[in-house]
Each structure stands twice: as structure tokens, then as C-alpha cells.
Design a protein around this nucleic acid. Structure first.
Length: 412
RNA sequence: CGGGGUGUAGCAUAGUGGUAGUGUACUCGGUUUGGGACCGAGCGGUCCGGGUUCGAUUCCCGGCACCCCGACCA
């Protein structure tokens, strides 16, 4: 698209009272708009990134057999009372409101209850199992303190997948597949190297739950990382017994701050028992399904990428989630040639942001650094004099002069 | 929820018990064009409520909002 038609503007100054790097840069570059504390809108550039992140997750979830659906935000208290989680003493982050009839309803904080309840209309037999479903859905959590930009919001999109199995063994098989899919997701969005499979407290169904923790100073969790084994232990279960269990020693662990970018945990039969999601086994017994839950917050993930991969000039997007593949800049003397090149790149199927504005070169460079598209192409009098165009890698700063015909193959 | 801090123009900031200043952005005119160009002119502002006072953006009380630390994060 043409930058001249993009309605968002970049800002030179950081927004007042916003110290978190992800919020500062994403607001300055025009990716998101802050509505209130912990509530952010996605503007065109931000939505492109969010969609890219979601599509990576979607492909991986489909790859392990997940079936996408969309549950509702409005929640019926009766369903939640069955599991005991309507009570504010039990779940203290509810947003609750009332219908015109004065009956109380809630805004979803998560979806175990409604999904489990809805599935009763469809699941009867061992032949229906196993399967898994997932959604990208808005969650509302009345956090006492929203903070750190996209990292801890009151309204946010979550990908939540739920698995339903006949027994523990079947559950384990799926759990392992989901774990592998999660590892691929974090690799593909560009933070695989900093992200550790982390052991955390498991609640009442299993010894551990598992988190995917990305090491960054912006994190609010403390984890103990074994680089050697590629795993980590959440501070909440950092005990001698656990170390022994996992076969790690204190000497090999380093303490790090980290962001929880994903978590997977066994639910056992807690919700199937509470809501009555039963199936008939082969010998006719009535049995509760064995469930698991698997979450990733795409917005939080996007914020985490910015925390880790940005530099002093702005954001550096990994190519898989960048809002565009190419940032084309026309400078004086190269306007006509840039127009031609723009049409060619569009025709080739690449996503390109074309800075065709009549502003100074310095402003184009500064905006380009801030927005952070991995490939920058510059066409100017200078490049045309050499019969070439200039290609800059946003991440490394490396500059190449290439023939026009080679552009496609030279992109990162 | 406990503690601390901050609310001044679209954004970022200065200052003052007596007509509110700067940068940037925006509008107009002109000159510019490889790292946020320059000159001139212009538009635009004290979070809300109450109190003290001749007079409050400033002082006092209350509220609301935002940020930070802590607690919390099923």
C-alpha cells in the first residue's frame, strides 16, 4: 500500500507515562492506540502483525487436528456456577454486568465452562473421542493493575485450545503434540531462541503445568533457566524436590525475568465432571472426558517480540510477522522509477509499503527505522546513476546495491 | 488492594496567586530534498467538582484518570 494513503502517523516523542518499550514503540509507530489502561486498539499496521501472528498459530493448531470455532464473550452465570467459578472469591477478575431484565451476566475470562457445556450436545460415545477445538477470542480480566503495554491487558485476544480424550494416556499423546506445535510457533514468530519450556505449578490434576517463558527484562515472572537442557523452572516451583525430579542442579541454572507467552496444562476431569461431559465407553460405562487446555495470547506475543527485537531506532520485525515484506522508499530523482518498481513488486505478490510521500529523505528513513519492515528498498538519483537500487536490511543495517532484476532473490 | 508519582494545545514539555511560554504537529506563502530541512505568517491549551481569595492553572479538600513499586495473576 501507499504510505500517502495510510491514515496513521508516526510520532517523534514517546507517549507520556508509558515506559514499557513495546507500548512506546507500537504507539509511536502507529500500530496500536491506547484507549485506557490495559486496553489497546489495533490500527492497520498493528492488525497486519496480529493477523500474521494468528495465522501462524492457526496453521499449527490445524496441523495437530484442532478445529476452529468461536465461542461467545457474554457468559451465562448458571454454567459457571456448576464449576464454582462464578464466585468472585474464586475468580476475582470477572467483569460482570446485568441484562435489561436485571439478570446478571459475565464477560468471559476464559472458556472451559461454556465449551464443555456446549459439547454435551455433540459428544456421546468413545467413538467421538479424541478431538480438540480452539478459537481466537477476546478475554476480559479485571486485573488489579494493568501494565507493561500489551503484556498485561484487561481486554485481550487469546488463542485457547481445549483437548478432549478418553483417558490419561490418550491425553498425554495429544499434550506432547501440542507442546511441539507451541515450540514451532515461537520459532516462527522469531523468539524461539529466547523462549524456554518451563515447569510450573500444576494445580490439582498433575504435578506440573507447562509454560513457555520468553527471557526479557520486561518480564514479570522469575524463572531458572538451564541453557544446557533447554528448559526452565518457574520460581513458584523452584524447590529441591523439583530440581531432583527434573535432573537439574542449582549450578547449571541462571535466574532470569521472563514473559509467559504460552501455557499448556492438563485439566483432568474437573470440568467434564462438573458440567457432565460424559461418554459411553466400549463396554457401556459412563465416563468423564479427560481435558487439557492450551493458551497463547497473540497480542502479548506481539508485544514480547517488540521488547526483544527492537533497537534504539525502532522496531525490527521478524519477516514472518512483519506488516509488510518490503518498505520501498522513493527519494528525489527516483520517483518515477520507484512507481514502476512498486507496481512490479505488487504484481509479484509481495506485500509492500511504498513511501511515496513528498517528505524529506530523513523523515522517510526515520519512519522506516521506526516501523521496522525487514527489507528496505531505496530508489533515488544516486542509485539510478549506478543503474541499481539500494537494499537495506533493517536488522543488521547491511546495505547492498543490486540490479533491479535481482531484487526478488535478495530479500531477507 | 497498599505505597509513591503525574494530570497545562493533537503530541511532548516550561512556568506563574494577576492577559499561559517553547518544541513538534497542523493551515497558508516561499525556498528546499540521502538521516526527522529552512524562513515568514496563522490556528490551538491549564482533568472534573468544591473551598480559600478582589482574583486560582497555581494554595486547600474531594473525585477521576494515567504511570511506577509491591501484593495479586484462578
Amino acid at each position: 500500500m501507499r504510505h500517502s494513503e495510510l491514515f496513521t502517523k508516526t510520532r517523534r516523542e514517546a507517549p507520556k507515562g508509558e515506559v514499557s518499550k513495546n507500548a512506546e514503540l507500537l504507539i509511536r509507530a502507529g500500530f496500536i492506540n491506547k484507549e485506557m489502561a490495559g486496553v489497546y486498539s489495533y490500527l492497520p499496521l498493528g492488525l497486519r502483525v496480529l493477523n500474521n501472528v494468528q495465522n501462524i498459530i492457526r496453521k499449527e493448531m490445524n496441523g495437530i487436528g484442532g478445529q476452529e470455532l468461536l465461542l461467545t464473550t457474554l457468559q451465562d452465570p448458571e454454567v459457571w456456577k456448576k464449576s464454582g467459578r462464578w464466585d468472585d472469591q474464586v475468580v476475582d477478575v470477572w467483569f460482570k454486568t446485568t441484562l435489561a431484565s436485571q439478570s446478571e451476566i459475565g464477560l468471559a475470562t476464559t472458556h472451559e465452562e461454556p465449551l464443555t457445556f456446549a459439547l454435551k450436545n455433540h459428544i456421546r460415545s468413545h467413538k467421538d473421542l479424541p478431538f480438540s477445538v480452539y478459537q481466537f477470542q477476546t478475554k476480559f480480566r479485571n486485573e488489579l493493575r494493568a501494565k507493561s503495554g500489551l503484556l498485561r491487558a484487561r481486554e485481550f485476544i487469546m488463542k485457547d485450545l481445549y483437548s478432549f480424550s478418553k483417558n490419561e494416556e490418550e491425553h498425554e499423546t495429544f499434550y506432547e503434540k501440542a507442546k511441539e506445535a507451541y515450540i514451532r510457533i515461537f520459532d516462527r514468530v522469531g523468539i524461539g531462541e529466547q523462549t524456554y519450556f518451563t515447569f510450573a505449578s500444576g494445580g490439582s490434576f498433575s504435578k506440573y503445568s507447562h509454560e513457555f517463558q520468553t527471557v526479557t527484562s520486561a518480564g514479570e515472572d522469575i524463572i531458572y533457566v538451564s541453557k544446557e537442557k533447554g528448559i526452565a523452572i518457574n520460581k513458584e516451583v523452584y524447590k529441591d524436590e523439583v530440581l531432583k525430579d527434573l535432573g537439574v542442579s542449582k549450578e547449571e541454572l541462571t535466574e532470569e525475568k521472563a514473559v509467559e507467552v504460552g501455557n499448556i496444562f492438563p485439566l483432568g476431569t474437573k470440568f467434564s465432571d462438573a458440567l457432565g461431559l460424559m461418554y459411553k465407553s466400549e463396554n457401556g460405562e459412563e465416563k468423564p472426558t479427560v481435558m487439557g487446555s492450551y493458551g497463547i495470547g497473540p497480542g502479548r506475543l506481539m508485544g514480547t517480540v517488540v521488547e526483544i527485537l527492537s533497537d534504539e531506532k525502532g522496531i525490527v520485525w521478524p519477516k514472518n510477522i512483519s506488516p509488510f515484506d518490503v518498505h520501498l522508499l522513493s527519494l528525489p530523482g527516483g520517483i518515477e522509477e520507484a512507481e514502476k518498481l512498486y507496481e512490479e513488486i505488487v504484481a509479484s505478490g509481495k506485500e509492500v509499503l511504498f513511501d511515496d510521500r513528498d517528505v524529506s529523505p530523513g523523515e522517510k528513513f526515520a519512519d522506516s527505522d521506526l516501523i521496522g519492515i525487514p527489507n528496505r528498498i531505496i530508489v533515488s538519483e544516486k542509485t539510478l546513476a549506478q543503474g541499481k537500487i539500494e537494499l537495506v536490511d533493517r536488522g543488521s543495517g547491511e546495505v547492498k546495491m543490486v540490479d533491479k532484476a535481482e531484487v526478488g532473490s535478495a530479500l531477507v
